[in-house]
């Protein structure tokens, strides 16, 4: 308890610490937002709540890590993870997701939970349970008399994440496939009547989601660490962000992503690093509770 009060005191004594925490939070938050954007896409278009989201992220990280181990330039790991995860996403869609789209929501939730367990365990067998990361040969920038350190690798990662997000948004707005995806999200049956091959749209959407997650993972492994069982926490963060922001609200997803990142950093500064996972999950309960109160005022329920 004394330690917690001390940590809070530190924030007021040295305001610059706040800036450092915020900066750290926003940088990791950008990557949370990327994974959440993929979830919002799949959720909105296919009405599948994908609990394997975080495991796609971690899988992408391991792809980039494997390339790095074999002496390939780490930045190339990002497009490589994007492509490989695209294929894995496509296979997953064809084998499992395709068969649960029309079923009730618990079915898809449980099926993707099963997938999440499978992915995590396969990665555990392949790469071991140690945490891994890639060391980039990049300098660290220092500000405010060295109080704030920003590794270039994190900066590069965030910029890459933002450009990827921008490219996907542009694609959704401009391309024919993007239009078909948005039409299917509005009303799948009407889209089918108008000659849109919804099965193709679904498989494309799910593959794209896996690819986005993969790229996010490849960025995370360069600036942070990954571990086979970290996936579930990323999934939960994605859920928190989408639940807080709502579907189809892109600025909201970005804002919520950055906010969650910052809150988590604050939480682990105050309570200690051991609480990081707990804080991510407690934020979920908090967001659900707030949404619940909002709905209750309208005499509706969260479903």
């Amino acid at each position: 308890m004394d330690q917690i009060i001390g940590n809070i005191g530190l924030l007021f004594e040295f305001p610059i610490v706040n800036l450092k925490i915020l900066l750290d939070g926003i940088m990791i938050g950008a990557l949370f937002a990327l994974a959440a954007y993929g979830l919002a896409l799949v959720w909105g278009v296919m009405n599948v709540k994908n609990l394997a989201q975080g495991d796609f992220v971690i899988a992408g990280g391991y792809i980039a890590w494997t390339l790095d181990q074999n002496g390939i330039q780490p930045l190339l790991g990002i497009p490589a993870a994007f492509l490989v995860m695209w294929v894995i996403g496509w296979i997953t869609y064809k084998l499992v997701i395709k068969r649960v789209i029309e079923r009730d929501l618990f079915t898809s939730l449980l099926a993707t939970f099963g997938l999440a367990i499978m992915f995590a365990q396969i990665m555990n067998l392949m790469f071991g349970s140690d945490t891994q990361s890639i060391q980039l040969d990049m300098p660290t920038l220092y500000f405010a008399d060295g109080f704030i350190d920003v590794p270039m690798s994190k900066l590069v990662g965030v910029v890459t994440a933002l450009s990827l997000a921008f490219a996907v948004i542009l694609f959704m707005k401009r391309s024919r496939m993007g239009q078909a995806i948005r039409a299917t999200a509005q009303d799948a049956r009407a889209a089918r009547v108008l000659g849109i091959d919804t099965d193709k749209v679904y498989s494309f959407t799910f593959s794209l989601n896996a690819a986005i997650c993969g790229a996010a993972g490849a960025i995370i492994v360069m600036a942070w660490v990954i571990q086979p069982f970290y996936g579930i926490t990323y999934s939960i963060r994605a859920f928190v962000i989408v639940t807080a922001a709502g579907l189809g609200n892109l600025p909201g997803v970005i804002a919520a992503g950055l906010g969650i990142g910052a809150l988590e950093q604050y939480g682990s500064h105050i309570f200690g690093i051991g609480y990081q996972q707990a804080i991510a999950v407690l934020l979920l309960l908090l967001v659900l509770f707030i949404r619940l109160l909002q709905q209750r005022r309208k005499r509706q329920v969260l479903q």
Partner: peptide, 25 residues
């Protein structure tokens, strides 16, 4: 119990994970 369907499932999952993490600290 104000949550329905998948939200209830995720909410309870979150509660269980949170409980484990808190107890381990």
């Amino acid at each position: 119990f104000g949550l329905r369907g998948p939200y209830f499932a995720i909410g309870t999952l979150g509660a269980a994970i949170a409980a484990g993490e808190l107890v381990s600290n």
